[in-house]
Amino acid sequence: MSEPVPAELAAIRARRHPLLVVVGWGWFALLGYFAATPFHAIARHAYGRHPRADSVLFEAGAYDLLELALKSEGALPAAVAAAMALLVLVSLAGHVPLAMAMTQLAFREEGRRRWLPLRTLAARALEVFLRFLGVWVLALLAKGVLVTLGIWLGSVLARNRAEAWGWARAEQAGLVVVALFAIGATAIHVTEDLARAEIITTDARFASAWTRALAVMTARRGAPVLAWAWRALVGGVAVVVVLVLVPMFPVGVAGTLLALLAHQLAVGLRVALRASWLCFALRGARARAPAEVEISPQ
């Protein structure tokens, strides 16, 4: 078995890894299903025996939907808690599949066209796990501090200027402040992925991953933010489009299948865009890498 070697820059493209995108989509679809299950079980227990089945929960007026929410008052907190636990678990353990995916995108194995051995990927993911976790925690803290600060400053501004400018204008000004801090948080969010790319590509330690990522951001005058933002925008538009379109679909099996297709296309697109963005970050890291860096399978 040969050693993995860095992929050529031209190969670090999401479109060169369609199967990886499919696997990523499958991962989120599975997790989504798990998260939805407790809520679905509550609804099924209450309304599963209704002759109009679940269409009664979507009927105009929402009489039964509200009733379901009211009558499952006791069960809903359990479902919410289960979903939150899953989210925390995915946020922590999710670094393993993320690192595996990034490794797969950035490296290839001589003689093998597509996939690095699962063992190699897993070993690499475990190797970088703590660093990934550290990057995530630090970024989460920094983003949280920035957003909290933005909201605090924005509301202070709104409150203090309300008398002079009127509430609407004062609050709009406050929102501008929040938006500025949100842009800052976005920059951190982008840098976070750049740091991950440094860890994967150059095996950078925690601190140097951040310094290198920040260097990329400054050297490229924030261009990565734009590269991230247009993808986020396209993904967001896709979500809005399906949210608007799907309610127009007919009721019944055909409508549900159509909705499934539309929704999963939107999810798949977001996964592909995420892969595409990670490739952007990985190419940046690769282009700046001082020398060929190899990973050694454990």
Binding site: F28, A29, L31, G32, Y33, F34, A35, A36, F39, H40, A43, R44, Y47, G48, R49, H50, P51, A53, D54, S55, L57, F58, A83, L87, V90, S91, G94, H95, L98, F132, W136, V239, V251, V253, G255, T256, A259, L260, H263, Q264, A266, V267, R270, V271, R274
Partner: peptide
């Protein structure tokens, strides 16, 4: 107000809930 001899799987609701959860996870997970 209703009863039935079998329980429907509520596929439409399951589909909507799954999609909502997927979008949340995609946004919040690393």
């Amino acid at each position: 107000n209703f009863a039935g001899t079998r329980r429907d799987r509520l596929p439409r609701l399951l589909e909507r809930l799954t999609h909502a959860a997927e979008q949340v996870l995609l946004t919040a997970a690393p």
